[in-house]
Design a protein around this nucleic acid. Structure first.
Lengths: 123, 123
DNA sequence: TTTGACCCTGACATCAATGTCATCCGTTGA
DNA sequence: TCAACGGATGACATTGATGTCAGGGTCAAA
């Protein structure tokens, strides 16, 4: 698909799609004219990228963990230097920390709303 | 305590502490000279702020949820307009989404490392 | 009293993500 | 063929969090 459709399908500005490519988070073929052409799997990848950005991870880190997210994980899991492993472990641990922070605050806000009498349900 | 100690205790640059104050995330008294003077509870508050920033929340949102985090929640839970409630509910839901994204990716990275033969343990 | 550590304010710089604009090319339907 | 639309590139602006520096007070210890 071309960039316009990818944009619609992911709710992502075209500008950003080109930006993600510049940062090596996604790739594209080129059609006979210069138009970008994307494989279908890129839709999911873009969604993942946006989710990770939203959660405070910079593109540099996202690039590192993208290989972990490839669909057929069996394939293409090459040259893992100890450095890369260490980096991934660190990213994973920082993600765990973030989850803790978010969970705690999610709970706090929920409790607050309940205590205020609003929002009696909805975890 | 003065700003230097708060900085040490929270591992936060002095610059940022003043910034958080400018953004109305923390408050300070002033000593006879113009020096800022912080209550002890600010230490925890700063840690919370940093955690939330790290998880991708902007100061504007953090300001909204800070009341939910006040220690004796019974006290000072005033004027909740429907708008504020709606805003908090939305923030809470977005936090839930973030948690999901993070959890999913945390698992993926963990699985990847395990599949690569590294890191056999450590959830 | 002087020095050094700490504080103040305010200005400017930076970095990453994102918005906006200008200019040009390709495709397609009236 | 021309208008309209989508695409490409590249430059510039903006926003938010942060770094850094300049110029100027406070205060305690030497």
């Amino acid at each position: 698909m071309r960039i316009g459709e990818l944009s619609k399908r992911t709710g992502t500005p075209v500008r950003m799609l080109r930006y993600y490519e510049a940062r090596n988070l996604i790739v594209s073929e080129r059609l006979h004219n210069g138009y970008r052409d994307y494989d279908d799997y890129v839709v999911d990848r873009v969604r993942q990228i946006r989710g990770l950005l939203d959660v405070g991870l910079p593109t540099k880190i996202i690039r590192q963990i993208l290989p972990c997210l490839d669909s057929p994980r069996t394939i293409h899991m090459p040259y893992l230097t100890p450095d890369m492993v260490a980096a991934l472990e660190q990213v994973r641990d920082r993600m765990a920390e973030k989850i803790e922070v978010l969970t705690k605050n999610h709970t706090a806000v929920g409790d607050y709303l309940r205590a205020a009498g609003f929002d009696a349900e909805a975890s």
